[in-house]
Each structure stands twice: as C-alpha cells, then as structure tokens.
Design a protein around this nucleic acid. Structure first.
Lengths: 125, 125
DNA sequence: ATAGCTATTGCAAATGATTTGCAATTGTGA
DNA sequence: TCACAATTGCAAATCATTTGCAATAGCTAT
C-alpha cells in the first residue's frame, strides 16, 4: 500500500485519509467489491470521495474493474486475474487471467476488463 | 434475425414489434451500441421496452455486453468477438475473442464480458 | 513551527442509465 | 372472432455515479 500511496505522491497527489482508507479496504479485500460496499466499511469517508479515489486508481491502472448488475466492482490490480461472480448472491472465485492481446494498431493505452458471471452451486438449486 | 425471433417464440415468447425492431437495429449494427442509441434509432418504441428486449436477449445469451463510461453496450453474439472502444469518441474496432475458459467447478451458466477501452489515434493528440 | 497556496474533501443536489407499477394494448391459440 | 396472458407505453421511481462549491487539510518554503 505504501508503494501505491508513494507512487501517487510522486505524481503530485496528496496523501490524504480517503485515499489511505480506500486503499486499505482494497488491500484487505481480495475479491471484487463495489464503491457502495467500500463506503459501507469506512463510513467516516464520504461516498463521493470513495468514488473519486476509485476513479483516480482507475486512471492509473491500479485497479481491475468488473461489471455486475449495473455496478462496478473494484479489485487492486496485483497479478493479472479476474473473478467469476454469482449474479444472485455475489459469491466469487478467482480466475487466472489467460488473456493475451496483440498490439493494437489504432489504439493506445488499452485496458481490459473481463467480467465472468454465472450462478454458483447454491444459487442454482 | 428470423432465427432469433423463432427461437424466442419456441420458448413461449410473443413476436412483438419492440423485439423485432430492436433486433433489426442490432442486426444492422456490427459494433457495440447503447440502449439509448438504439432507442434513438427507433423512437416509436418506448425506451423501457428497448431495455426489456435487451434484458431478454441477455438472459438468452444472445448479446455480448461491454461497459464503457457507466453504460452498457450491446452487440449481437454472432462469432465470439469483442471491441476496442475509444473512451473519448466511441470509435471502435473489432477484436477476435481468443479467450478460452477452463470449466468452472462451482459455477454454471457462466457468461463472459470483455471490454477493451483506450484512446484512438485521433483522440490521443 | 508557521503561513500560504492549492488540492482535496464533505455535503447536498444533480445527472443519467436502468427499472418498475399499472392500466391499456396486442399476439396467440382455441 | 374471442378470450386470456403476455407485453407494451407511460410516468414515476431507483440507484449508482458525478458535480459545484465552500470549508478543510496537505505540502512547500520561509
């Protein structure tokens, strides 16, 4: 986490409580989590600020994003991996990222976002 | 298109104008398009109905979905492929889908949704 | 330490995509 | 053609995310 905060600081961004807190939650949460749920865990921080921090992290490619039920789920971009997420209950499991891209001729700064959704065993009964 | 409508009919769904019109737009549009833009092209159909049709198609796995700027983009699921989409202007190009999944032990009915976003040449100046 | 400048925050209100309740309409099978 | 259930259009509600702005808090130089 220090790494990331330092990295941001080097870019001229201040080291603030919202940034620290949101990163803390992401650090301790190995699965994809929504902005709403992050805010739930750190109510001291305003929801708008949670969104602002997440957008900053996204801009720097520091988080992976997945979309489930019209809501973005965030996860720190450690090793490239994704999640299978149950559409009903939200249960998820890690999946290694095996995707490799050719270079894009006409695009720069391409980021990918893979969302795998399905029904977990429990919910499929 | 007849195929899809027939397929739905076989499942007990009625053959209605909204379903026909939305499919028509998707047929003629090889790139990812938003519900809003679909509605723009067929204003006779209510926006709510456009959404209902799209959700139905999604349920049946007949469309691929990508997420750009908090908005879902739909594309008929013909051959497995995706799009690189410019975050700024919306310009997009097709990309073959090279993703292959292992079987999932604890999930069924897994669908994948891959979104590639970046900046196109024009917008990167 | 302090002062001062600017980035960042919290708050409340706005936005915008998507969903929903319900009465009216329409497709389908008899 | 009739009757019934599914589906629509409309308007209002939801819900995630964004934004304007005044107040606050980092950071740098003194």
């Amino acid at each position: 986490m220090k790494d990331i905060l330092e990295q941001l600081k080097q870019q001229g961004y201040k080291l603030t409580k919202p940034r620290e807190k949101v990163l803390e939650v992401l650090m301790h949460n190995h699965f994809a989590i929504s902005a709403q749920d992050i805010h739930q865990k750190i109510k001291i921080i305003d929801k708008a600020s949670v969104y602002r921090v997440l957008n900053l992290l996204e801009e720097f490619g520091l988080v992976n994003i997945e979309n489930v039920n019209n809501e973005k789920l965030y996860c720190l971009a450690r090793d490239p991996h994704h999640h299978v997420i149950c559409k009903k209950c939200g249960y998820s499991e890690e999946v290694a990222c095996t995707y490799s891209f050719d270079d894009f001729k006409n695009f720069i700064n391409v980021q990918h976002q893979l969302t795998l959704t399905g029904l977990c065993k429990k919910c499929s009964n």
